[in-house]
Design a binder for these strands. Sequence first.
DNA 1: CACTCCCGCCAGAGG
DNA 2: CCTCTGGCGGGAGTG
Length: 765
Amino acid sequence: MEVKCLALKDLTSPRKGFSVVDQMEDGGHSDHKENIYSERRKSTPLTSAESIIPAFLMNRKGSTPDAAHITPIKHTCATEPWTPTANLKMLISAASPDIRDREIKKVLFRPIENNKDNPASPENVMEDADAEDHCQSEAADEEEAEKKPSRKQKSLGLLCQKFLALYPDYPPLHIPIWISLDEVATSLGVERRRIYDIVNVLESLMIVGRMAKNSYIWHGRQRLEARLQELQRRGREEGYHRLMELAQFSIRPTALVHEDDSGEGDTGNGGGNRKDKSLRIMSQKFVMLFLVSKTQTVTLDAAAKILIEESQDSSSHSKYKTKVRRLYDIANVLTSLGLIKKVHVREERGRKPAFKWLGPVEFSTSGNAESTLNVADISASDPTQAADRQLPKKKMPRHASFNILPKCPPVIQRQVNSAPCSPRQEMSGMTIQPVDYSMKTQSNKAVFCLQLGNSASISSQPHQNSIIPSNSSSVPSSNHPAPLTPHLYTPAPASHCLAYMPSFSQPSVVMLYRAPDKPSESPDGRASPSTESVELRKRRMEDDDQEERLLAKKGNCGLEESDEVRARAQREANQATETSLPHGLAGVPTEQQATSPSKQAQPTQYLYVPNSAGLDNFNFLLSASHPAAGSALPLALPYVLVPSSALHHYPLAGSDAHTKLSLNLMVGAGPYSLPSYLSSSPVPLPSSPEKLYRPAGGIPPSPCALQHKVCMSTAEPLTPLTPKESPASSKAFFQTPRSLAGAAPVARKRGSAQRRLDISHPLPS
DNA sequence: CACTCCCGCCAGAGG
DNA sequence: CCTCTGGCGGGAGTG
């Protein structure tokens, strides 16, 4: 098992970009300062949890003292071969040889590769072969690039992207995700110091919360909007908007405000002088500036000045420089969060670096749609005022009505989000920046359960992107995954299977569900990507970044572009990877069968969604007895994996009310673990994970099989983030109705850990 | 040269 | 005292 774990870990390591071999031999290397890895220590309070957590979840933890890799970038080349990316590149290049594409690819994918969870899994290996030549040809360029770890590749922003990619944007509220800074640092191959920078900023936005020394808890974007709203309010109260105005005229703001600490309501530990200057506080203030700014654009210069005044630092030039440095750090993180975008503002003399807010500025709790509405129309209305109006709504509970699933979610959503830059995207964690990890990020972040049944509306769900990322993105101009969702996602009753695929090398998803009495339509026919829009996006992309555009209401351009590109990439990647998928799941069926508690009536079926696959590319794992499977592959195997296309005639999910497929899935990757309290609760987690993993038949699971372990459980579904799981979550307007609305309430009582959680993250103040 | 921002020293905080 | 945090600013990489 040990070995397996190791392998698994290696495979799933965030540094997946590296070959396993690499990692191994590298074992201890580490001269590189930046790559210092700390001895693995489990400082996290997860101990108890560990005992019950499936190995795959824990793999990050003790498995290997893997040496942290240094800048991943160096290995980029090496990784390419087996990464889906490689295929993607190949495909893309084949399709459109032009350089521009190439450039785009470079930007988009390199990062991904770094994050990549693509280990040398069989599937990947397979691709590997395919991509091999490609790689070779490209090797030249790559090599050069690789030689130099380029500073950019080590940037905080990139690092942050990787960090974010490790966790779900919208983690289930009842399943706290613990973060050990050590682990993260090790996983990402950087020294801890860098992680502090990221975490501090994230903490200021309540994306993470500090729980203890070296230990944080991941909230994802669950509380982000609430937090932003809070910051906006505070910013206004403190007169930041005035400061901004003054700053805009280069007038040295006189410290109008002074609050500071307050600022921090932040979590826990407290302040102190040192803390007052902390990145966390600076970050909050910085964000406040955006939120109260009419143009939502803040120049570095203005921010630095304002912040300096505030902190009453002497305004020496050096102070200013230091401040600016820090602001860059913060900006990099915010950028990777997709909250801001770098721009340049023209001024009398030359241009000044500035950042434009891309996140939501108007907050409303009434409806997710509205709340998420982005700044698209800032120009039309004064955001500030709008915000004011919204404030009162803040606490409005939303779910009752949301629980009713819209019949046609996609449509609805579309209407709501007609605005291009809808926050939805923003929230999804997609980045607008040139460097986009979203592919990985999005899909990788998913940790939730879905249920297949009938009408479900995933589209409005915050985490939707996690699930259907590829799909949604592959849908051309529309920003919605809608088309397909209806088919697959439906609120399901209590029963469901839980597929836990946290350590997937790729942000793939495996859905398990019990087949209904009758098969329904295949999910295939959904959205077909419209190439045309892709082109448009590409074009747009070219001119993106123009500073001028800054002020223009580009609303969505940035996001959409990213989306598009991503979509395209994913689509292609899908194709590339599809063939290799079977390997990945090969061993699963057996295990499942043996252990699946719920398979009694109907054979359990599996839906494997490659990270990059669009729904059309779903591959299904069917019991051999299934008509589709049988016809397609008359095998002796209990289950076979077939491409969705093969199931064309055997619809799995239908829109008809009868269809009752219930599906749950959990995807995730990253060095997180579950809190110990789970161990004592009747949660979905398999009580004896090991059994689940172990192939009942004695058929030794292949490495890949292990990697794709799936454990099923009939336990209750993860609870949807009902708005009120915790008091603090009341403001989770980012969330939309969960498709799980109908799911049985979780009977679990929260453990102390959970309680602590809730308590520890009350809005600061 | 200006802009960015990586890097890691080192001191304060916490245990 | 040791470890964790994280302020800080030198100086390297970029454009």
